[in-house]
Design a protein around this nucleic acid. Sequence first.
DNA 1: CACACTGTGGAAAGCGATTGCCATGCTCAA
DNA 2: TTGAGCATGGCAATCGCTTTCCACAGTGTG
Lengths: 372, 372
Amino acid sequence: MSALDSRSESGATPRRTRVTDPEPVSVTLQDVATEARVSLATASRALNGGSRGVRSENRDRVLAAAARLGYVPNASAQATAKGSTQTVALVVSDVADPYYSAIAAGITDAAEANGLVVTMTVADRSPRRELELVRGLRGHRPQIIVIAGSRIDDGATERELIDELAQYRATGGRTALISQPGLPFPTVTVDNARGAETLARTMAEAGYRRYAIICGPNRIRTSLDRCRGFTAGLRASGIEAEDQVFIQTQFTRSGGYDAACELVERGLDGIELIFAVSDTMAIGVMTALRDAGLEPGRDVAVAGFDDISSAIDVVPALTTVEVPLREAGTEAVRLALSDDENRTVRIPTTVHVRASTPRAPTSSPAPTGPST
Amino acid sequence: MSALDSRSESGATPRRTRVTDPEPVSVTLQDVATEARVSLATASRALNGGSRGVRSENRDRVLAAAARLGYVPNASAQATAKGSTQTVALVVSDVADPYYSAIAAGITDAAEANGLVVTMTVADRSPRRELELVRGLRGHRPQIIVIAGSRIDDGATERELIDELAQYRATGGRTALISQPGLPFPTVTVDNARGAETLARTMAEAGYRRYAIICGPNRIRTSLDRCRGFTAGLRASGIEAEDQVFIQTQFTRSGGYDAACELVERGLDGIELIFAVSDTMAIGVMTALRDAGLEPGRDVAVAGFDDISSAIDVVPALTTVEVPLREAGTEAVRLALSDDENRTVRIPTTVHVRASTPRAPTSSPAPTGPST
DNA sequence: CACACTGTGGAAAGCGATTGCCATGCTCAA
DNA sequence: TTGAGCATGGCAATCGCTTTCCACAGTGTG
């Protein structure tokens, strides 16, 4: 309000032919300049500091005028003039999923530390949509485009996405992916395979012999990698294939629930531990077991992956693998900003043994090994 | 330099389809125009379709050229030229918190439906930071600014925030808040008080007589409203004040844990039900009880608020009040877009009775009453 | 056959900034 | 006293795009 008043005072410069303009117009740098009785250029230099000096008396007048008028530079105009923006564009599969929101939090942190604003868009787990978003985002000329989402095998779309990103990079853009390695761009990747492998070894050492492995669709690389890593760990520990039952289902809580029901129906058949490739699925499994009259942990052990925050609050507390998603996010920004061409950074995971696998010593967490 | 070359020489025929262009310059509308052998103005009109017609033959040539060159309009330039952007700016307190990410999801949905892009920033629960963000965001001239976060009482900053938003609206911006009513802007508000009140009545009817109420700092309006609503409901059901114990703590899981420990230490003293003002706190309470050798639900009932997704997976399943956050998000966008000046929309909540309050009939959910 | 009219293309004026370049005034050394 | 050198202000070009305004051609009417 006071800002508007003072602007009409400065009505020396009629920006509009209308005297009483009902039209809401925001304060421009020109307004600040006239108010401070300097030129546009000087006002700009006073505000941006640059290497170029401005006599301190003038600078003060400009700063004062800007404050008085409530001036905020027009980011779009700055962007066109400078040819670059101060934003990082983030594409996630689903905000409501804690997995992605943790990543988003990490990215936001890192972006802020670099004076960048984050713009987030949601691809809704569709590679097609992801592609469209990237195309549109290119129009905003962000400093960085980060795409967070498990690769989903889909040849044609993937090729188009690569094209689009390559074009973006060709025009000076920076990118980072948070997903599985394989695309020709800097990638931050969670070491799913190794995490699952370590978990499997730990469980085998603890004496579990017969396993059920509940995983999602093979198209989802995250699921596949964890599944393979787990079986690799079992094999390395001398557990035979005939002691492993696989069930494929949805990559969701109810997927886990259903799979566990199926397992119970056809008789547990000596299965001692159920590994679900995500905590949400594992929690579905536990609820299903309980609904079937079995006590998770006592009657059959359960383990998951992700270490979501509720893993510690379910009963029994869930044995799982921690994935430092927030760090993955900050790392992605760092990677994009560095000139390290097409590097892949592996984020190490940590196994947490808890009450849901009572035979194993609920040890202090041990990282799954050095990252490569 | 080479870019300039290729552009000027492109007057002849198609641009060199050289794959190895050393100079990174992105395709501009001018490039498309020359490629299509029409003027800049015509190219713009062909792409944007406006009311102004372009002969179909020319339009086709422009469209083809744009596709061939992989042209993406520069959003910043469009924004400066048109004076407005196609974005909604969202300020949340914390992305990683499911409460806010659910809201963010709703906003993203609604924004997308209106052809808007969402840019999200994180205020980190600091009113000061929130203010700074809004100030910076104004520079991006978004269509809408949505602020999602419980009001925190803090006189000076709040006044500045009001100023800032008022200035934004004065220049044609649209706003919506998702928080408690009280600020002179369109507001979407979760009916916390009524939800808590209904919960209290339901519990009182079920026969619970002695209560502990665990809440967060009074500065946090969400906490305060739920607390007050609950006691109002108790009072209305004839429960006396001497049958209510209050504990104030952090608005977090560990706050809930600590409070419950304190409660246990000083003797439960006949308390039959513990109400925590958020589910995360309630889950902390349950874990604390169990750690103290008590069985939640059997030894003492527990209820929370929010209906976060894990509320159904803890044991016993948590009685709570569902808050349709996603809807709150979409509603906020609708509200901002409508010309409904300073309206307040109340989002109704729903009580879910579950096993953590075994005396109450685990009924089909009933909404907490019509919204105003 | 002249005349408004309409449909369409292009030149050019913005939008709100940044920045290269030149002009100016001042200081300081010769 | 004079000219070199430096600090600083301002004009104007520029970024990529939209949109107004004008010109011009083709049409149907009087």
